[in-house]
Amino acid sequence: MATSPSERRGIPAAPFVHDVQTYLSQSGLETNVALTTLQERLQQYKLAEMKLLAQRRDLQAKVPDIKKCLAIVQSLISKQGTGEEITLDFELAEGLYAQALIPETQSVCLWLGANVMLEYGCDEAEALLRKNLENAHISLQAILEDLQFLRDQVTITEVTIARVFNWDVHQRRKKRQASGESSA
């Protein structure tokens, strides 16, 4: 029987309950207490899921930005050696555009963040942007895997809650039937 990893990036795996009766008697918990504990666990998983979803959203927003930069740098590279200028309209302020002529160029400046801008050769800039794009995809993949793991734990916990609940209903019914028979 396959077992899943017991944790992933600090997220503990949800224990799988093979038999509800054994689970309750071994943990020594009342049904209600067990249900509350499971609900709390579920909430924690949901919280972690929301954090991961936010991270994914940020990364997904980064990808098109990098692609835009790449497209421009590639256009600049394609003009190299032709002696052609690029005419373009650029935004001065919201809704206000001015025209610029960009002569053939060998270098561009990349904004690296933290108030730093660095001049790169066009080819170097392209390589760097490609690398960034690749890294973004790798991080995204890692987050997707974390999310999948987390969702499995959510499903396990939900199923366990339903099973404990069902088991309890079943036990009550049995008890009621037994007392009904004895009083009859």
Binding site: A71, S75, T87, F90
Partner: peptide, 11 residues
């Protein structure tokens, strides 16, 4: 025509 490349419009 003006073709949008990133944030700018290229002629």
């Amino acid at each position: 025509v003006r073709y949008q490349l990133g944030e700018v419009f290229c002629h």
